[in-house]
Design a protein around this nucleic acid. Structure first.
Lengths: 107, 107
DNA sequence: TTGACTAGACACTAAATGGTGTCATATAAT
DNA sequence: ATTATATGACACCATTTAGTGTCTAGTCAA
């Protein structure tokens, strides 16, 4: 699982709360090394590293070696797929008008 | 796991492709019984039923007993949480302007 | 009333997930 | 030169997941 460059499902990547918080941290800090990210969680460095690998394989994170540390940065582009997907369902929850709207559109 | 009414994470619910297709089918058909949903997949009825339970626990699906069949319908409202979450990251991928925009907003 | 159909409940299994600890290596600092 | 730091690579483990099959019960139709 370590260096699986195959495509990773972005939906799976964001399913875990730890990984969502990692994305948030990287959104706020531009670029962070592993040990600094790890400090925000109640788990070991290895576990955080694995989560970052999953994010990396999903294309949501970029890694850059800088001296002895590896700096991670956010790459949000793949989230657009999620946004497009969820947008399809928007009419279904908006103001309980979904059914009526779709009924009208059919005619 | 069968009747776990506890809150289920909506992110976990949509992480599985089978479950996303279930949502799509229910979006198109308004209301469908289990056996009819099952016909669209290459897996047994029990497996599909379990997926529906996960969707139900996440609040994404409503079940109604009708005679000997159980009819399922979409309830998209919980997806709004996902939409709000992903919207936060929109500026990060739009036109590669994200960095510049946020830089300007900080000043 | 008998028989077919729909679904729930349960037991089971293989594989994936999310964590741990340890070891080796490269880099930085004293 | 030595020591401390940062990370990657493994091996390992417990739990969850996603599927299976079987049995039972309720409902519909002949």
């Amino acid at each position: 699982m370590s260096h699986n460059n195959q495509e990773r499902d972005v939906y799976v990547a964001i399913a875990d709360p730890t990984r969502r918080q990692l994305l948030r941290l990287l959104a706020e800090a531009e670029e962070l090394p592993l040990h600094e990210l790890t400090a925000h969680f109640h788990m070991g460095r290895t576990a955080v590293s694995k989560h970052l690998t999953i994010l990396k394989d999903a294309g949501l994170v970029l890694a850059r070696k800088d001296g002895r540390e590896t700096k991670y940065r956010l790459h949000a582009a793949p989230l657009q797929e999620v946004q497009d997907w969820v947008a399809f369902y928007e009419s279904f929850w908006k103001q309980r008008m979904g059914q009526l709207q779709r009924l009208l559109e059919e005619n």
